[in-house]
């Protein structure tokens, strides 16, 4: 019998703990498929964040390090500098990457550190139960913005991809979404390019993935996808924000 569907080798045989409808599972699978396709499972080191993906070190079938909250780019820097031939990636959420770890993110990018960052932006702190994130939209209700995020009190959400693309260090920065088959396929292509860039020693690559958090948004999985399309994409436009390959061609 022909196998028509199977788990990527780079995903371990451990049940994911994510909530129903959460898109972490999709992105994990995309990363694993890319690792399989590039044949780099044996040389890849992943860095797990603090946040919903904290257990990622159990899910990826490669060597993994668990970092302190926000420190994944620094940990990845240490790993990459120790063994430059290894392929090093971090998998971080918006609180981890864009709040507590902003400095580590910006400076790894500015150094052009030859690592790959997968950035999950779902506009909320998931693991701690739905608090305001640096990417929470204006007006969005969370546990710590119970009357909706107000600009006067809580300021504006941060567009990380746009901000980082102003730096000279990064080689590739792209924002994708996993709300549709087409966008999922786009996301996979972006992730693959972000890993390929590292193999080709092109330097820092970051793929921002707009994701859903049905549980903490208080929506069904389908409603959550609609909410992402209607609210997040207008504020966080999809697209390539930096690509040194395209710049060289132009």
């Amino acid at each position: 019998m022909a196998i028509v569907f199977q788990k990527p080798k780079a995903l371990s045989d451990v049940p994911l703990h994510y909530c129903p409808g959460c898109t972490h599972g999709i992105v994990h699978r995309l990363v694993a498929e890319v690792i399989d396709e590039l044949g780099i499972e044996g040389s890849t080191i992943g860095v797990a964040p603090v946040g919903c993906a904290v257990f990622a070190y159990n899910y990826f079938n490669c060597d993994m390090q668990e970092a302190a909250h926000g420190r994944a780019p620094a940990v990845a820097t240490g790993i990459k500098r120790a063994n430059p031939e290894n392929i090093v990636f971090t998998y971080q959420g918006d609180g981890d990457l864009a709040a507590i770890g902003t400095a580590e993110t910006v400076h790894a990018a500015a150094r052009g550190e030859n690592i790959t960052i997968i950035f999950i932006n779902n506009a909320i702190y998931g693991m701690t139960g739905g608090q305001m994130a640096p990417t929470t939209l204006v007006g969005q209700v969370t546990q710590t913005s119970p009357y909706g995020r107000k600009v006067e009190a809580q300021g504006y959400p941060i567009r990380m991809s746009e901000m980082l693309s102003t730096l000279e260090g990064p080689s590739y920065i792209k924002r994708c979404s996993v709300d549709s088959i087409k966008n999922i396929n786009d996301t996979k292509r972006a992730i693959k390019k972000a890993f390929q860039n590292q193999i080709d020693k092109k330097g820092f690559s970051l793929v921002e993935v707009l994701s859903t958090c049905p549980t903490n948004w208080g929506l069904s999985p389908v409603e959550a996808l609609d909410w992402l399309r209607e609210n997040m994409i207008p504020h966080y436009p999809l697209g390539t924000y930096k690509d040194i390959d395209a710049e060289q061609k132009a």
């Binding site: 860095v47 970092a67 620094a74 990845a76 820097t77 240490g78 500098r81 580590e104």
Partner: peptide, 20 residues
């Protein structure tokens, strides 16, 4: 490597030490 902070520096040590 001159890190961006002491926090980053110790976490780079974590990564490198973990890498052996």
């Amino acid at each position: 490597l001159q890190a961006e902070s002491e926090v980053a520096a110790i976490n780079m040590v974590y990564g490198a030490a973990g890498a052996g």
